[in-house]
């Protein structure tokens, strides 16, 4: 029983950590990194990276 519970917990953790990119920018706005927890850090590509957007600012 304990083994089954552990397996279920592991599956839940893996699902929670998964990132298909769909939760990156729900509104299409450029926001701070802390408002886009699913996005991986990347080099800037033609616009400011989220690391340089302050908390609470949304650029469209």
């Amino acid at each position: 029983m304990a083994r089954v519970l552990c397996a279920c917990a592991l599956v839940l953790v893996l699902v929670a950590c998964g990132d298909d990119g769909s939760n990156a920018q729900p509104s299409g706005a450029l926001t701070a990194c802390m408002e886009r927890p699913g996005e991986l850090p990347r080099p800037p590509a033609g616009k400011l990276p989220c690391e340089l957007i302050p908390p609470g600012l949304s650029l469209k």
């Binding site: 616009k47 400011l48 990276p49 650029l59 469209k60």
Partner: peptide, 9 residues
Amino acid sequence: DLIAATSGA
């Protein structure tokens, strides 16, 4: 340059 290229900034 990135500031200038970012829409809304």
